[in-house]
Amino acid sequence: MKVPVTVTVNGQVYQREVEPRLLLVHFIREVLGLTGTHVGCDTSQCGACVVLMDGKAVKSCTVFAVQADGAQITTIEGLARNGQLHPLQEGFWEMHGLQCGFCTPGMILAAYDLLQRNPNPTDEEIRHALEGNYCRCTGYHNIVRAVRYAAEKLRVQA
């Protein structure tokens, strides 16, 4: 049994028939072929699969595709606009906030959610906001600097 869903991903409308149990992350990766969103744990701890759903960070391994029916999704592929990197992407690059890159898309989108709520976070607030995203490579040191870089840049732009 398949059910129809309509999901807008990075501004593009997709209509597909899916199994009700299909996870949003598999919908994004395998049905739409957008492989920037990663699966690290499939039990909602690691945060590699974070996307924005109607502007808020969700772990897409814990959302069914059918729950995203009618929603606006932003994945890492949709963050840069007109070839211009988002300040968070820029920050991760400038500050060496990534090594293997696997956690990076989820980390960036979780940080995006934080900066929407709190445009001027302290280091402690950044660390707290990212506790649902594991990184095994960086020790988080440069991730904190990357988010701070983006926060400053976004404040200047605003």
């Binding site: 920037g36 994945t75 890492i76 592929e77 963050l79 840069a80 990197l85 960036i108």
Partner: peptide, 17 residues
């Protein structure tokens, strides 16, 4: 800064899965 990063920060890395 690293030359490999643009693909990772834009979701264009290629992992086995």
């Amino acid at each position: 800064k690293r030359r490999e990063d643009p693909r990772f920060i834009t979701g264009r890395g290629t992992y086995v899965d």
